[in-house]
Design a protein around this nucleic acid. Structure first.
Length: 259
DNA sequence: CGGATTTGACCCGCGC
DNA sequence: GCGCGGGTCAAATCCG
């Protein structure tokens, strides 16, 4: 994968961030359009790829861009049923890999948090961890535990600022959240810590279909769901910055925010 | 005991 | 064609 970090815009500074508070936690969003950036961004946007957007969603062109490969093809793929047979394993693996080129829409955001795996209302199973180039921190791979849900999530820490967690969702949930926000007695200490922390969900956007996976914000600050998963072609583009304010009005009730 | 996590191996796409 | 690097698999291990 390409080095996203280098092509990313600089981290937000105070002057460009929005602030609002709820439940006593302070949150800042660097740039609101970042909330819903991502390859394709098919999910959440009414009518699929770009059509039927509410007027306020004056999104830049790259937001609604299709991934390199067809998203639609990916949507019907990966029934992820694991055949137990050993001999056919290789064939099945290679068959799956063929579909690798087809990518689901992605959604990435950054959160300033000490907790790597942020509670977002869904249950995730970790299926891999990799050390990535140019980063001292490993990248973790999670898959939604719901049997028919093929949403994946990558979590890594920023090499530039270890306090920042970069979370990338891929795919679209076909079910509702399964985890309650209250601490569970049977949860691991880290889970309890995560779930017991004051949580704030970003206010729901005006999505007509499934809502995007909205991050639950922990005591740390959300620096901003801030970048798109850049493809080579995406990097070349310069994305016109939408007016944050217009978007913010849709996402953050004006009463909640202050500059 | 069942579900989650760890971790090394494997596969594949991509750039050179 | 080759090597690198990212993503996934699956057996082993851990944990409640």
């Amino acid at each position: 994968m390409e080095e996203q970090e280098e092509s990313l815009p600089p981290l937000s500074d105070a002057s460009s961030s929005w602030k609002f508070s709820a439940d006593g936690a302070s949150i800042s969003i660097a740039s609101l359009h970042d909330v819903c950036v991502g390859e394709g961004l098919d999910w959440g946007l009414p009518g699929g790829t770009g059509d039927g957007l509410p007027p306020a969603f004056d999104l830049p062109s790259w937001v609604t861009e299709e991934p390199r490969s067809s998203v639609a093809a990916a949507a019907s793929s990966s029934s992820d049923e694991r055949p137990g047979g050993k001999p056919a394993e290789k064939a099945n693996r290679s068959a799956k890999r063929v579909q690798k080129g087809t990518r689901q829409p992605r959604f990435a955001f950054m959160t300033k948090s000490e907790i790597d795996h942020l509670e977002d209302g869904y249950r995730w199973r970790k299926y891999g961890q990799k050390v990535v180039k140019n980063s001292p921190f490993p990248r973790s791979y999670y898959r939604c535990t719901h049997s028919k849900c093929n949403v994946k999530k990558r979590v890594e820490r920023s090499s530039q600022d270890p306090s920042i967690v970069i979370t990338t969702y891929e795919g679209q949930h076909c079910h509702h959240t399964t985890v309650s926000a209250s601490p569970r007695a049977d949860a691991s200490p880290s889970q309890q810590l995560a779930s017991s922390a004051p949580q704030i969900r970003l206010p729901a956007m005006q999505f007509h279909r499934n809502p995007p996976v909205l991050p639950v914000i922990h005591p740390g600050r959300v620096i901003g769901p801030r970048y798109e998963e850049r493809t080579a072609s995406a990097v070349e583009r310069t994305s016109p910055a939408p007016t944050d304010e217009g978007l913010l009005d849709d996402v953050v009730p004006s009463g909640m925010r202050r500059r």
